[in-house]
Each structure stands twice: as C-alpha cells, then as structure tokens.
Design a protein around this nucleic acid. Structure first.
Lengths: 139, 139
DNA sequence: GAACTTAATTAGAATAGTTCTTGATCTAAA
DNA sequence: TTTAGATCAAGAACTATTCTAATTAAGTTC
C-alpha cells in the first residue's frame, strides 16, 4: 500500500485551489462550508473550526473567508446589514430568506433563464456579479 | 387669493404619507431623496439637510429613514456591507453598481417580466421583497 | 386656551461586525 | 540553512448603526 499523493492533506482538500494555497486554516474553513447548506456567518465558522484548530483566531477566519471569496472558491452573501454569510454554491443562484425560521435557501433559475436578458440594461454594460435576494415565508 | 390647504407645508410635502406623520425632519429627508438619483447614504442625507435644519442630528436622520422605509415611502438598498443607501423609486427594479465611477443606477425589467415566474421557488412561498444587485462596468 | 399625554428629536454613549496592526510563525525557494 | 514572503494570532481600532436619557414638539381633552 503506497502513501497518498502529496496534493491530498488529511482534510481531503487539495493543496491549492484557483491559485490559492490551501493552508490548514483555509482547509478547515472550506471543508466546513462545503458540508453546510446553512450559509454560516464568520462567527459560526469560527466556533465550528475551533474543534479542529483550537488556537485559530476570528481574524484568521475572516482572512480565510476573504481569500476564499477573492479566489472565487466560495461566495459571500449579504442580507441587509446582517452579518455576512458564506456559500459554497458557485452556480448562479439567488437566496431566499425565510423570515419565519431565519433559514436561507438557494434558489435556482428555471431552465434556460438568463437574468441579464430580462433586464433593461444600458448598452455596453459588463456585468461581473449578480445578487438576488428574496425575503418571505414558506407558507 | 385664498390660503393653501392645511395639508401642504412649506416644503411641499403632505402632512401625512402612508399613515406616517411627516414632521419637518421627515419632510426634509424625503424631499432631498425625491430629488436625487444618486441613492445617498444616511450621512449624505444628514450633511445635505443640515442646510435647511442646522440642528438636525444624525440619529434623527436614521430615525426618519427607518420610518420612511417601514411605511414604504422609500427603499433601503444595500451593497455588500457598504453603508445603506436610500432610493425614492418604489417600482420593482434592480440596482447596477458601476465599479468605475462608484455610481448606482436603477435597472428596470423588460416589459412583461415577472422575476418570481423565472425562479424555481418551493411551492407555497410568499415573497415579500426582492432585491437584485448587479456589479460591473459601463464599458 | 391650559394641562396632559404621547411622539419625535437630540446628543452622546454603546454596540457589533469587520478590519487593521504588530509581532510571531510557517513555507517555499535559493 | 538562509532568506524573503506569506500567513497567523491577539487585541486594538474602526465605522455604520442603534440605544439611552433628557428635551422639545405635537395632538388631545377638558
């Protein structure tokens, strides 16, 4: 039985993603987010990865999240002025905020829909990012 | 020549809108927003209405804006974690944030488009509010 | 209109999420 | 191994916003 290839760490996360070196802290942050549908806040990530890395600091969690966002490995999601949340789903999608439970759900477009086709945008507009937020209740 | 009806104040804003009593401070906040396409922040509103009301406080501006938003007289718009901005346009529309100039533009839907028809929402979902944010450049 | 009640305003303190600073530690390369 | 640069930790600092307490204004009742 041979050893694992060096790209694979104990966390199961590659050493590098999209040009970002995946340090142990970034791996833990990323791994946790990947297993969550709940769109955790920085503080929730912090509390959770302390189990694996007791000495990790909140500042590091913020640094990791910022690095992951900038390298398009996760998405940052904002609802009004609430704490930012983080989402591992990179497909174009919106977020539905259920006011009753406080939970957040990803919302896909129906097949074949391209949002920019439906908007009355000025000509020569280059769109780099779209964010769709819905608020309401699951009746 | 008779006097003006008592509903009309010197600012030209009615005494009440959507059940909200329009105090002098609220009038000034509202009047300023109505004349702006620039989606000002609370602080920008504050600086501007101090010209008419030198003793107004920033807390009052926040109070006024909150009251106007809650009574659906203006909309609060958020871009990431930047300071909230305020928009007098109540039609369903999105916001395009031009990264080059930092300006914000309202974006309409093409005629006949209803966003909720295009989204793959769970059944029995009651949508109370939609926010669409675009970021990019006017090339 | 005077007394009373409630709402609105002000000023400044407090809060909370996030960012910054500094020094220590780790990593990759030479 | 040495060096340079990146990353991390801890706590201070920052900033938009909210809260608190006291004052003022407005509306209501007599």
């Amino acid at each position: 039985m041979t050893t694992q290839p060096s790209q694979i760490q104990p966390t199961g996360i590659p050493e590098e993603i999209n040009g970002l070196r995946m340090t142990r802290q970034r791996q833990e942050v990323y791994r946790f987010l990947m297993g969550e549908q709940s769109h955790p806040t920085a503080n929730e990530v912090f509390i959770r990865i302390k189990e694996a890395l007791p000495n990790v600091s909140l500042a590091t969690v913020y640094n990791c999240l910022e690095a992951l966002v900038q390298h398009k490995i996760v998405r940052q999601v904002n609802f009004d002025r609430e704490p930012s949340r983080y989402c591992p789903n990179l497909d174009e999608h919106g977020h539905f905020h259920d006011e009753t439970t406080g939970t957040i759900h990803d919302v896909k477009f129906k097949p074949g829909i391209k949002l920019t086709d439906l908007l009355d945008l000025p000509p020569n507009t280059v769109i780099k990012d779209i964010e769709i937020t819905l608020r309401g209740q699951l009746a």
